[in-house]
């Protein structure tokens, strides 16, 4: 059994210790907000927060985060009204939306440590791939939150 704390709830999961957190979330816990995009930590669609830090869950063994607080997109807010989510709606950021759970979790983690990031800091921290190309709106939305 692997004991995980996800969005404040404890779960005991019967899974191989090497199973990446992404697949425990999706296939064992039925939490589908976190997405599979590449499986090799390149695209960031699977980004969750481990103790508030953005982590790519597709290469993170579930057994490595048993003592941590795991936050997924489902745990970011009850009503979808966290500052990042509100800014995302205001700027109409998502297109297909598939990468946006990971994008939002990465941005939320960045703003925790850098509430007013510069463009260079955004470029360094937000390396998620978006094939629809929402990058310009992502940047505008981040700056908007920083000014609030």
């Amino acid at each position: 059994m692997i004991n995980l704390n996800v969005n404040g709830t404890d779960h005991a999961v019967d899974a191989d210790p090497d199973m990446p957190l992404l697949w425990v979330l999706r296939d064992k816990l039925g939490m589908m907000g976190t997405k599979f995009g590449c499986g090799i930590a390149q695209c960031g669609a699977c980004t969750v927060q481990i103790n508030g830090v953005a982590v790519r869950s597709c290469v993170t063994p579930a057994s490595a985060v048993t003592d941590a607080k795991i936050t997924t997109i489902e745990g970011l807010s009850e009503l979808g009204d966290s500052p990042v989510q509100k800014a995302w709606v205001a700027h109409q950021v998502p297109q297909c939306g598939y990468c946006q759970s990971g994008m939002i979790m990465a941005v939320d983690a960045l703003l925790k440590v850098k509430p007013k990031p510069t463009d260079d800091e955004i470029n360094a921290a937000i390396t998620n791939i978006c094939r629809c190309g929402t990058y310009a709106r992502v940047r505008d939305a981040i700056h908007d939150i920083a000014q609030a």
Partner: peptide, 11 residues
């Protein structure tokens, strides 16, 4: 505003 926006920011 797009009709799919809110659910897309909530996963």
């Amino acid at each position: 505003m797009r009709l799919d926006m809110q659910e897309k920011v909530m996963g």
